[in-house]
């Protein structure tokens, strides 16, 4: 065991980060005993640079940068097995969700996964529902390396009549309550996040 076990948070920023995650994911995160049941249960653990167990530790130590820069937070599939099994009734998945949420608010932090989440959230906010055509089209524009995969999938789904191939059809799904949707995101979400979603919108269209 070469890892430090100290819980001391060194910087005020680290302390603020730790408190923010605890507020989002639950105070019980502090009771983590580092048993590793979450990592052992995680379906994508083998692909992660930082195991979930260690991610929790980084949070408690206020290691903001190391936690947020980990690829692991984007490899979580939200399958909840960690949460089913945690002997301390912590919700490790909620810790990951909190990290994603904080990452998305941070200035200058962006990766293909956060771009995808941004497009997804903004479509809900603006239309009320997800159009897979618009979602794929926007993501393909913002992340061109995904084009081959999306096209191959499209070739499978379009002949089956499962994807509407027109903006009119896709937009036809817009619900009546879009004002309410906007209010949900603006009143309950983070303002910085919706501002960032706005930027994404401008950059896309």
């Amino acid at each position: 065991m070469t890892e430090k076990t100290t819980m001391a948070t060194t910087t005020p920023e680290g302390e603020e980060f730790r408190e923010k995650v605890l507020a989002l994911a639950g105070d019980e995160v502090k009771t983590c005993i580092q048993c590793g049941t979450c990592s052992a249960s995680c379906p994508t653990a083998s692909l992660m640079d930082v195991p979930i167990r260690k991610l929790v530790k980084l949070v408690l130590e206020g290691e903001k940068e190391r936690a947020l820069s980990s690829r692991s937070i984007w490899l979580c599939t939200s399958c909840l097995l960690c949460t089913v099994r945690c002997p301390r009734s912590i919700r490790p998945m909620a810790v990951v969700a909190a990290l994603k949420s904080i990452y998305e608010e941070e200035e200058g932090m962006r990766c293909k996964d956060s771009v995808f989440e941004g497009i997804f959230a903004r479509q809900i906010r603006d239309y009320g529902r997800i159009s897979e055509f618009l979602l794929s089209a926007e993501y393909m524009i913002r992340s061109p390396s995904s084009a081959a995969q999306i096209m191959a999938f499209g070739a499978e789904l379009i002949p089956k009549g499962k994807i509407e191939l027109s903006f009119e059809a896709a937009r036809g799904e817009r619900i009546e309550g879009t004002e309410e949707m906007r209010r949900i995101f603006e009143l309950l979400g983070d303002e910085g996040k919706s501002k960032k979603a706005e930027e994404t919108k401008e950059a896309t269209i």
Partner: peptide, 19 residues
């Protein structure tokens, strides 16, 4: 006039609960 549930892509729990 149902709306999207947010699936696994709305990380903010309060927003996802409201949806």
């Amino acid at each position: 006039d149902w709306n999207c549930c947010g699936a696994t892509h709305v990380s903010n729990e309060i927003v996802s609960t409201a949806l």
